[in-house]
Structures are given as structure tokens and as C-alpha cells.
Amino acid sequence: MPPPHSKRRVVAPRSAMRRLAVIVGPLLVVGLWWFMSASGGEARSYYLPPPPAVVAAAVQGFADGSLLEGALATLAHFLGGFTAAVAIGLAAGLALGRFEAVGTALQPVLNFLRTLPGIAILPVLMLLLGLGNATIIATSTFASVWFVLLNTAAGVQEVHPVVLDTGRVFGAQGWRRWVSVVLPSAAPRIATGVRLALGISLVVAVSAEIIMGRAGLGFIIADSMETLRPSAAYAAILTVGVLAWIVFQVGEFLEAKVLPWANRSDVRRA
């Protein structure tokens, strides 16, 4: 991601227009929502409550602590799944990149597992691990770990020969070779895997909550619908959206901090 100043520079000439658009767009969507809700009779306004009802439910949910609690539970599930996916994916990916023959042998299986919708494993894990948090976290990890793993292995294998030769010429050996040459060289590719894992582990954590959770925003969505409180469900859905947005912002921020050089094509030549 480009440093903040270059972003601003790109936006600058039409900033007034843009600022207006940024406000008008969402307003239009909310307006359309409201119109749809109001124009479809009682049944529709039940399943698609008008914005004020949802806002009221959200206020209520935050006031009694249930939404915040749910958000924290979801955050914990997601972070558990994501962190495990990154740790396992990195370790296994490095090993696979190191022993290329193993990587080649496992490639088809790994590619299959990557394309497999991870949530499909949930019923199996429910049997294995029970109906607790462990199952949600494990499902989330299972769904996202392949992206980190495959990208790490590929990143390690694709280090350019000139980079490796340069390391050798200047005496990078053993662990130094890994830490100072191979890993940084593979880092942008690894970051791609981590970014994918970030989105998927969150989606799958919420999905698992909807199906079998006893806490978390996914659980609140499912529970509110079952107990005939659609406004509360919508409030939880919006909260999921906000949570995801925050998670991605933090992710982008960290990436820019850790790999300031990785997206260098958008950086102007100094």
C-alpha cells in the first residue's frame, strides 16, 4: 500500500467531488433500503425492517452489551483461527519450500484443499471437537491455512537466482540466509497469502457461528432470526460489516508498516 501522502496526492484534484460522492452514495443506498422496506407491505417490512428500527436495535444491543460481547467473541474466534492459520501455514510453507520434492508431491492435494470451501469441514469438526469455540476456530483455520501455506512455499521457491547468488557471494549462510535473504524475498508473496487468509478466516468464523455457535455475531444473527427479532439480526449484520472493515484497515496498516517496500509500483520515484 502506498504511503498516506501519495494517496492524498492522487485524490487531491477532485477531493470536493469525491467527498460529496462518498456521502451521497451510502445515503442513496439507505434511501433505497428504506423505500424497499416501506413499499412492500407488512411482510416485507418485517423481513426488511426500516433503517430507524435497525438503528434502534443496534443502540439497544450496544446499550445492553450484547452486541459488543458478540463482536468480541467473533473477534476472538477470528483471531484464533487466523493466527493459527498464519503460524501453521508459515511453518509448513517454509518446510515445503525447503524440500521441493515434498512440495511437488503434495501440490495437487493442497490445491484441492485450497479450493474446497472450508466451511464444509464443520460437521466433521463438530463431531471431533464438540460444539465449543475450538470447533469454530479450527474450522476458520482449516479454511484459511492453505492460502498462507501455498503462498509461502511458492514465495520461498520463487526467490530469484540472482538474489540467492547475491546472498551467497556476501556470505549469507544457514539461518542468516533464511532470515536475511529468503524470507524477505518471499515476504510479498507471503503477505498475499496472509491477506487472503484474513478475509476467509473471518467469513468462516462468522459462518460457523451462524451454524453452531453459542456466542459471537454469527450466533446473534441466527438467534435473532429464530426468536423473530429481524431488526436485531440486521444490527448484528451491520456490526459484522464494521468489524470486518476495522480488521481490514488494521491489516492494511500493519502490512504497510512491515513491508513498506512491497508495493513499490505505486510509489513515485524519489
Binding site: 540472482v162 538474489v163 547475491t166 535473504v181 524477505p184 515476504a187 517496500w261 512491497a262
Partner: peptide, 11 residues
């Protein structure tokens, strides 16, 4: 190296 673009570490 001839390929200085690759040989210098971008990170």
C-alpha cells in the same frame, strides 16, 4: 551482477 535491479535487495 549485471542484473543490478535484482541483485540489490528491494526490502
Amino acid at each position: 551482477f549485471q542484473d543490478y535491479g535484482r541483485s540489490l535487495f528491494p526490502w
